[in-house]
Amino acid sequence: MRAGGFGSPVPFLIPALLIVFAVLIFPIAFAFFVSMFEWPLSGGGGARRFIGVGNYVTLVRDSGFWNSLWLQLGFIFIAIPIELVFGLAAALLLNREFRGGRVVRALLLLPVFFLPVVSGMTWRFMLQPRYGAINNLLVSMGMPQMNLLANAQTAYAAIIVQDIWRMWPFVFMLMYAGLAGIPDELLEAAEIDGASYRSRLFEILIPLLYPTILTALLLRIIDALRIFSEVYVMTEGGPGMATMLFSLYTHRIAFGHMRVGLASAMAIFLLLLSVLFAVTLVRKNLSLEELERRGGGG
């Protein structure tokens, strides 16, 4: 190799690695370090105190931590199955040619690209008493006039519905692409065999779509674990602690209660949880070889 030529990949990788180290890997290590201290946000160095696993012990005993964990899990267990069913059903339904089909599919995806913060504010608007559209709809169906975001149950329901509204088209988009990847012969063969739609769905389509379903599920879980801005502008975690999902509680501990050490312990906990799901997703469903074989097609 002549002078100045790169015979090795290292020079190509170095810039990315340097930046990722500086703003990702090092901060994670630092968060782990901070998590072992009692570390007030504003105080000087003198106020810091090494307490080892003290913050983690505090968390296990903190009812706020468990509250946010249960809210987070409930959010995942309610919102995501609905999104998967809606997304799959819509993909099966729209997987045919009809007039305006392309336009319908394109428009369906718009909510996915609605800025999360704008979505949160629009939903907050629609939920307002007296003039909000959702509130008015519920009142016309016989519900009493109320501030839906000021009530613990309805506020929690609202943040879930907001997420379903915005993200089931995301699942739809993945499923639709997955369906397009199934060879027609497979489906036609089943049709000739005289299989009923139901058995075709459960015995052929869903097993064939299984990798796509799993990808969608894992992507949605990873995404739901870090939800922040929509809920922040809708409720700020309230009323009380009713919508204090994991990221919101961590934010509150760090910048409301100024307890950076404790917040870092929460950050590390969530990080490990997310890495667990991310690694599962990556190992099971995204193979570099596969991507390279398929190339730029799809």
Binding site: V23, R226, F246, T250, S264, A267, L270, L271
Partner: peptide, 22 residues
Amino acid sequence: AYSFLVFRMLPQISLVVALHLL
């Protein structure tokens, strides 16, 4: 390659407290 993909999926809240201090 896979590490980069996992990095993309980390929650921002896990990093933002440390980034703020740094």
